[in-house]
Amino acid sequence: MEILPGEGVPSAKVGEHRDVVEARIGRPVHPGRDSRAVYDTNPILVLTYAGDETVEIVELGYSGGDGEEVFFDGVQLTYRFMDDVLRDLAARGYAAEPFDIGYYFEPGFAIYSMGSRCAGDLDDTAADDDPRVVVEGVSVAPYGYFDKKPDEEEISELMRRYG
């Protein structure tokens, strides 16, 4: 599946209303907590909705050889080693900015790893302690979304909700 940086994917775009998305792809298999919903697509699609029920961020997971992976500009993003993806994107002129679990890119997307995959998943010869990181997901939103630092009100809301 090809991402549209800053926008999403053909089946779900930032700014679209939940009713429009669900008319296209169906109801979520797991509505999630609060504003997140998981859809049974290939690859798996997780949408975060804003308070007005419009898509705020589009996330896609890896398929792991059992289905379709996520691509951008001819580069397979998911279920590959992070360093290989970074190298291929850099060769096409896309500079990466690191964050705690991955990298974001100015066109409006991020790649990340939650650490649930290991090098052995991609390379049968990898040792158990192989440090190579596997890209497990892609987030798509306008670039400013990734560069945004929470303000005091947002921190207070997160603390109230999860603290």
Rank of each mutant, 00 (worst) to 15 (best):
V38T: 08
Y112P: 00
I155H: 07
Y62S: 00
T48V: 14
P98H: 05
Y79R: 04
V29D: 06
H30A: 06
G120D: 08
Y103L: 04
D84L: 08
D40H: 05
A12H: 08
E157I: 08
S116A: 15
I111T: 10
D40F: 09
Y62D: 01
P131D: 12
T125D: 15
I101G: 02
A50F: 08
R87I: 00
V58G: 07
E68P: 07
R27S: 05
E154K: 02
E22R: 10
V140S: 06
G163N: 03
D124I: 10
I44C: 03
G74I: 11
G65A: 10
S35I: 07
V29R: 05
V58Y: 02
G26E: 09
F105H: 03
S156W: 12
H30Q: 07
K148G: 01
L86G: 02
T54G: 07
I3P: 08
V133K: 03
L4F: 00
P5Y: 14
G6P: 01
A127C: 06
E56H: 00
Y104M: 00
D34A: 14
D128E: 15
K13V: 05
G65I: 08
Y62T: 12
G74S: 09
S139P: 07
Y145N: 06
P98K: 09
D19G: 14
A96F: 05
E56I: 09
K149C: 08
R132Q: 05
D124P: 10
K149W: 03
A91W: 11
A50N: 13
L77Q: 01
P10S: 02
K148L: 13
E154H: 01
K149E: 14
E106A: 13
P150T: 02
E53A: 15
I101A: 03
M114Q: 12
E22I: 02
I57F: 00
R117V: 13
L4I: 15
S113D: 04
S113A: 15
D129T: 02
V14I: 13
R24K: 15
Y104N: 05
D66K: 15
A91H: 05
G32E: 05
D130E: 06
I57L: 14
E53V: 09
P131L: 12
D84Q: 14
V58T: 03
P107S: 12
G32R: 09
R27N: 05
I25C: 01
R24F: 09
E7T: 13
Y49T: 00
V29G: 13
A110Q: 09
V140W: 00
I44E: 13
P107D: 13
D130P: 07
V46Y: 08
V38W: 06
E97G: 04
V29P: 01
S156D: 14
E154L: 10
Y49L: 02
P150D: 07
L45A: 00
C118G: 12
D73R: 10
E69L: 13
D34S: 15
Q76R: 14
I101K: 08
E152M: 01
S63D: 05
G108R: 04
Y145I: 02
G163W: 03
D34C: 10
E152C: 01
G102P: 10
V140F: 13
M1R: 07
P131V: 10
L89K: 04
D73N: 12
L122R: 11
D19L: 12
R80H: 12
S116N: 15
Q76M: 13
E136C: 09
K13E: 04
E153L: 13
S116D: 15
E154Q: 11
T48K: 15
G163V: 07
N42E: 11
P150L: 02
